[in-house]
């Protein structure tokens, strides 16, 4: 299992699309920085194929006023949880 990290908003370029196409059925995806915009209910349908494997970083949601506005299907992790995700994954890939 690999962890894919996306720091770009769905509206900015193709990072999300590229990350999704490089994912296998077990891989997980973590949204950080502007990537957390993808956790909004209006955006989250773009991640329908990986439901249950989508995470977003709490600090970055909070800093943007998006904490609580995010879709409940997105699992929110703090930075400690980010490290845990990297422990559990054999490798990480970043898409920016």
């Amino acid at each position: 299992m690999k962890l894919h990290i996306v720091n770009r908003a769905p509206d900015a370029g193709r990072a999300v699309e590229q990350a999704l196409s490089a994912m296998t059925a077990e891989d997980r995806l973590l949204l950080i920085e502007d990537g957390v915009q993808g956790a909004l209910p209006s955006q989250v349908d773009g991640f329908a194929d990986i439901e249950g494997r989508l995470y977003a970083l709490r600090d970055d949601l909070e800093a943007r006023g998006l904490m609580g506005r995010h879709d409940e299907r997105v699992k929110v992790v703090d930075v400690d949880g980010f490290v845990t995700l990297t422990e559990q994954a054999e490798r990480t890939l970043s898409w920016y």
Partner: peptide, 17 residues
């Protein structure tokens, strides 16, 4: 295609983007 890309990424020890 996307499936083959996912497999290629899986087959390499280190992937740099």
């Amino acid at each position: 295609d996307a499936a083959a890309i996912a497999e290629l990424v899986d087959r390499n020890a280190l992937v740099l983007t």
